[in-house]
Amino acid sequence: MKMMMNHNIQFLSFKSFYLNLSPSIKSTIWITIVLVIVLLIVSKKLNKYDENQEPKGIILILEWLIDGINTACKETIGKRYRAIAPYIVTIAIFLFVANISGLFGLTPPTASVSVTICLGLMTFTLIQFFGIHSQGIKGHLKGFIDPNPLFLPINLIGEIATPFSLGLRLFGNILSGTVIMALIYSVLGYAAIIVAPPLHCYFDIFSGFIQTLVFCTLTMVFIAGKLPEDELEYFEKEETIE
């Protein structure tokens, strides 16, 4: 009996925990769940798909996406593009779905500063990891006093500002779109039915796509900045040798 009561209390607290979350965190949870289910189904489909067949439907879209991101990674990162491309694809899918989720009546997760700064911190961790991985801890720390030790504070600030600039850029863009749409809906009332769709096209789809592109490109550029320069070129020949 006592155990059951405990269980009951835990369940209630979980429910109240969910209800106390901010709307953007709630939509983050739902979008993540939906994406996981959809990608599971797609991966099952991919297992059945044989290479000689013509790709169609969602497999065609995925092929286009992964091919595009692989090409972009080869251009910026070079030899080690395989280590980073999966992260970029993950970020790109999540960010794009999150940015256009205003169309489905959700609050975009990226309109919450905690989500975007968290994404920025993930990229920051990866940047530091690749810095240490390619130059060793000593070489990485030496990079902070690059021209001379006087530049240490400037370099440190520049390094720490990276996740905040990444996160706040995304946050500001999506939040401004959300606020402007809310203003339009509250001012125009029923007339918003005519005015809102083109604005949704701009603020949700176009702006969301551009911001996804910017976030991914900046991630790739920052990571490429930590890699040694002779690795940054990629020759198509190497793949045929493999």
Partner: peptide
């Protein structure tokens, strides 16, 4: 061009955040 413009927009976005 679109990528460069999105970068240039950043300072304006920061000001917007300050305004909010």
């Amino acid at each position: 061009m679109l990528l460069g413009q999105a970068m240039a927009e950043t300072t304006g976005i920061y000001a917007l955040l300050i305004a909010f």
